[in-house]
Amino acid sequence: MTDTKASGRMQAGGKTTAASTVFAALRREILSGALPPGSRLRIDHLCQTYGVTINPVREALNRLTAEQLVVLEDQRGFSVAPVSHDEWRELVRSRCLIEACALREAMSNRTPVWEEGIVLSLYRLSRTARFLDVENRVPNPDWELHHHAFHHALLASCNSRIILDFCEEMRERSDRYRRIAALSPTGPRLTQSEHKEIADAVVGGEVEEAVKLLCAHYQRTLGVVEAHFERK
């Protein structure tokens, strides 16, 4: 579920609820790594930060708990969900399994418009800097948007909204790990050549090569993120 979807939940009359606004903001902060794993989420502080009452904050936290991005512990209250090697490995494994099937399906349904979408999204990604400030590891939000758009474009013609939504959820949960690791002075690795190789294989109709390259791309990211957490 994207932040657009999250913030798009409306009351009767078309107004975004206060709970949806808080939910979208907190979700974005957690997924970006701005709120680190284990951070306490004090209700009174959140009420002041977002200028809302207790009920919208509680509703937002409960929704985030249902997404496993927030945990509720007796006597301790709400906090940002921890990260773990096991969850990270399972996320990568799930992405490889599901996206391999989705990519094969997308390539079997290829259209000129779909191919153009891949080429355009790759071009935009290649023209965007990964960091606003490389030395201080300040992420570039535009790069994240274009990176997301590229991976979505690869699967866009699989003709299954359910599969695309599931891939979207897995991508966002994976991005949480990747973005946390990206803040490290030792990361991230350069991936632009990998993106181009994947796009070339997809547009060229090399189904098994495209699937192999996509899964290898995720597996290399798996190793980089694991190495980051092992150093901490």
Rank of each mutant, 00 (worst) to 15 (best):
M1W: 11
M1K: 09
T2K: 07
D3H: 04
K5C: 15
K5M: 07
S7W: 05
R9T: 11
Q11W: 12
Q11H: 06
Q11S: 15
Q11C: 13
G14V: 05
T17A: 04
T17C: 03
A18R: 09
A18C: 10
A19T: 01
S20D: 10
S20L: 06
S20P: 05
T21R: 14
T21K: 06
T21W: 11
F23T: 03
A25D: 02
A25S: 03
L26N: 03
E29T: 15
L31C: 05
G33F: 04
G33W: 10
A34H: 03
G38S: 08
R42E: 07
I43D: 01
L46H: 00
Y50D: 03
G51T: 03
V52Q: 03
T53I: 14
T53N: 10
I54W: 10
V57F: 03
R58K: 15
E59F: 08
L61A: 00
R63L: 14
R63I: 07
T65W: 08
T65N: 11
Q68T: 12
V70E: 02
V70K: 01
D74Q: 15
D74C: 12
F78H: 00
F78E: 00
V80D: 01
A81Y: 08
A81N: 10
P82N: 15
V83L: 07
V83P: 01
H85V: 13
H85I: 14
D86W: 11
E90Y: 03
E90S: 11
L91D: 00
L91F: 00
R95D: 00
C96R: 04
C96S: 09
C96W: 06
L97M: 08
C101T: 13
C101A: 14
C101K: 11
R104Q: 10
R104V: 07
R104S: 06
E105D: 09
E105R: 10
S108C: 13
S108F: 10
R110G: 05
T111G: 06
V113C: 10
E116Q: 15
E116P: 03
V119Y: 07
V119A: 14
S121E: 04
Y123N: 14
Y123C: 12
L125R: 02
T128I: 14
A129N: 12
R130L: 09
D133L: 15
R137D: 07
R137S: 10
P139T: 00
N140E: 02
N140M: 03
E144V: 05
H147I: 10
H147G: 07
H148K: 13
F150H: 02
H151A: 05
H152I: 15
H152V: 09
A153K: 02
A153Q: 01
A156W: 04
S157K: 02
S157F: 06
I162P: 09
I163D: 03
I163K: 07
E169T: 11
R171Y: 12
D175E: 05
R176Q: 11
Y177I: 02
Y177L: 02
R178G: 06
S184L: 09
T186V: 13
G187M: 06
G187S: 08
P188T: 05
P188K: 04
R189V: 07
S193H: 14
S193K: 10
H195E: 06
K196W: 13
I198M: 09
V202L: 08
G205N: 08
G205Q: 04
E208N: 12
E208Y: 08
E208A: 05
V211A: 04
K212Q: 15
L213W: 00
A216H: 09
L222T: 00
V224I: 12
V224N: 13
V224E: 11
V225T: 04
A227Y: 06
K232H: 13
